[in-house]
């Protein structure tokens, strides 16, 4: 079971308040959509959940353990933020294999399956630097899900993808949800966001201004922003 709680999270960067008293709760087996214009704080919120930035005030806890105090990063998390970045001189498989080696959780077969799942060929020797934008994005998604993490954070995963790529991402996200992962998703396409999300947090100027529940399952334990 995974549970993420943000308690009055405020983040100021060089006198700019990028998150303003954000309070919300998220649970496993659900997809949480973040909706908002550029600069509304979606990516900052994701970075806070991942542990890459520390709140100026308030706290982020994962399963009751506070990030930055009880642990530095969530135990099981996969993410894709903005532009995926891998080592240009390695192939897609080599990049993921290197990453998987850190935790030793994903096996060779699992990595290859994951690469196939995003529509790439794990046997392709093409170097990452020669990948198209769409291929880079697909590899970034594969990296986020290959270890079957409890939490999956995807920032604009459909960027640079064609129609078939977008459908593929939708299928992947549904599978991640069915597996029991807690998925946090941001997407400029409101249609896709509404189709996939169980709950949507609409953000404006660093605040969660609206909480829309699209799927009532477990709503009683859902967000209270």
């Amino acid at each position: 079971m995974v549970r993420i709680e943000l308690d009055k999270v405020t983040k100021r960067i060089r006198k700019n308040t990028v998150l303003h008293e954000v309070t919300l709760k998220m649970h496993e087996g659900r997809i949480y959509g973040l909706q908002g214009v550029n600069g509304s704080g979606k990516t900052m919120l994701m970075r806070t959940v991942i542990g890459l930035i520390r709140p100026t005030e308030g706290s982020v806890s994962v399963n009751g353990r506070i990030l930055g105090r009880d642990m530095e990063f969530p135990e099981s998390i996969g993410f894709l933020l903005e532009n995926p970045a891998f080592l240009g001189q390695y192939s897609g498989y080599e990049n993921l294999n290197m990453l998987a080696g850190i935790k030793g959780r994903a096996l060779t077969g699992q990595i290859k399956d994951c690469i196939r799942a995003v529509g790439l060929d794990p046997e392709d020797k093409k170097k990452y630097r020669k990948y198209s934008l769409g291929m880079k994005q697909r590899l970034g998604i594969a990296a986020a899900i290959m270890e079957e993490p409890d939490i999956v954070v995807l920032d604009e995963p459909t960027n640079a993808l064609d129609e078939s790529g977008v459908r593929l991402v939708q299928d992947i996200l549904r599978r991640e949800k069915a597996r029991g992962a807690l998925v946090i998703l941001s997407c400029h396409d409101i249609g896709i966001l509404r189709e996939l999300s169980d709950e949507i947090f609409r953000m404006e100027a660093g605040r969660v201004v609206e909480h829309i529940c699209l799927n009532d399952e477990r709503q009683e334990e859902g967000g209270d922003a």
């Binding site: 890459l52 993410f79 970045a85 080592l87 990049n95 850190i102 990296a143």
Partner: peptide, 8 residues
Amino acid sequence: IGQQILVR
């Protein structure tokens, strides 16, 4: 990629 490594 260091960001991925750091979090892992």
